[in-house]
């Protein structure tokens, strides 16, 4: 028998997850506008896979299926997976990634709320290691029509170096290897005012959705601010030291998955730190590692690896950053 309190706020996990999905829509809209509608096909495939995987695993585990589908958390995972992937990735990559995220990363650890790692990020890392070439073919903004995108997603011929390219980060990296200066590289076609051409708008869309989440108090300011600030500060330090070798902090904020990560990935409550100070440390750690991987690592984008590395540290961070309890003096915990 459940005791007091007898009244409850009309909040639910479903409502939280729905708000997150809603907050992703500005970014997705910008995506469709700038890159093409292929992403919608991928979202549909991923959503269907997520629901199927969730239902199947829960059935195997002997748990009720309906409430778990209803809570929409699987859809959030699926959408994040897709938004991290190139929009023309073949359908089976999406299916494998989403199934991996749901069945292995989430349910092998006990389901919703139990996974120590961010499912979408594990899926991204696994795919980029397993299918490096497929995972680095990005269409330039507006470079492919919907029919071509659909054909590619459904497994069409993939000899497309002429029309697909690399992301801004990738291009920057390749250019730097070729001993060009940052300024020269940034004048090349894939780059826009701030980051990759067109991708800036998508980042702005994510930013708008993130601000919505902040306004609705679904997330707190700690993680996005700490992440973006650390990323910008680290980038800024290197950029000031050597502007010819390192891109500006604005470029780093507007490129790759920085905005998506800041508001939707780093803020995953399940696998992230939970104390106010812990959140700042966690997100700052991701920002730092992400920049280091971008600038010096083997991959153009480092956020996913950074998230997983910091996920590993969460128990320690949480333990060491327990906030002061009412009436107790700081630092005098037993």
């Amino acid at each position: 028998m459940i005791q007091s309190p007898y009244i409850r706020k009309p909040a639910s996990v479903q409502r939280v997850m729905f708000t997150v999905l809603l907050a992703l829509t500005p970014g997705i809209a910008a995506y469709v506008w700038q890159v093409g509608a292929g992403i919608l096909v991928n979202l549909a495939i991923a959503s269907a896979t997520a629901v199927a995987a969730e239902a199947l695993v829960r059935r195997l585990r002997g748990r009720p299926i309906a409430p778990a589908i209803g809570d929409l958390s699987a859809l959030v995972t699926a959408w994040l997976v897709v938004l991290c992937f190139p929009p023309i990735v073949p359908w089976w990559v999406t299916v494998v990634a989403v199934t991996l995220a749901i069945a292995a990363v989430k349910h092998l650890y006990g389901g919703l709320g139990q996974n120590p790692f961010n499912p979408a990020m594990v899926a991204y890392c696994a795919m980029i290691v397993a299918f490096p070439s497929l995972m680095s073919q990005w269409p330039p903004a507006g470079g492919l029509d919907f029919a071509t995108q659909l054909d590619l997603i459904l497994g069409g011929a993939r000899n497309l170096d002429a029309i697909t390219g690399a992301t801004a980060l990738d291009a920057l990296r390749t250019g730097l290897r070729g001993a060009e200066s940052v300024d020269a590289i940034l004048r090349q076609p894939p780059f826009g005012t701030l980051g990759g051409r067109g991708w800036e708008w998508i980042a702005a869309g994510y930013l708008a959705g993130g601000l919505l989440l902040l306004a609705l108090r679904v997330i707190t300011w700690h993680m996005p601010v700490a992440f973006l600030a650390t990323l910008a500060a680290t980038a800024g330090a290197f950029w000031l030291a050597n502007p010819a070798q390192f891109a500006s902090p604005l470029f780093h904020l507007a490129s790759g998955g920085a905005m998506l990560a800041a508001f939707f990935i780093v803020t995953d409550p399940v696998s992230g730190a939970t104390t106010p100070l812990g959140k700042i440390i966690f997100a700052a750690g991701i920002g730092l590692i992400a920049y280091l991987i971008r600038a010096f690592g083997a991959f153009p984008e480092g956020i996913a690896f950074a998230v997983l590395l910091m996920n590993l540290c969460v128990p320690l961070i949480d333990m060491k950053t327990q906030p002061r309890v009412f009436g107790h003096r700081r630092g005098k915990s037993p």
Partner: peptide, 14 residues
């Protein structure tokens, strides 16, 4: 005072 819905797992939302 509606009877509370069946609990879901904690998502550590804070």
């Amino acid at each position: 005072f509606p009877r509370s819905k069946p609990p879901l797992p904690c998502i550590r939302c804070g």
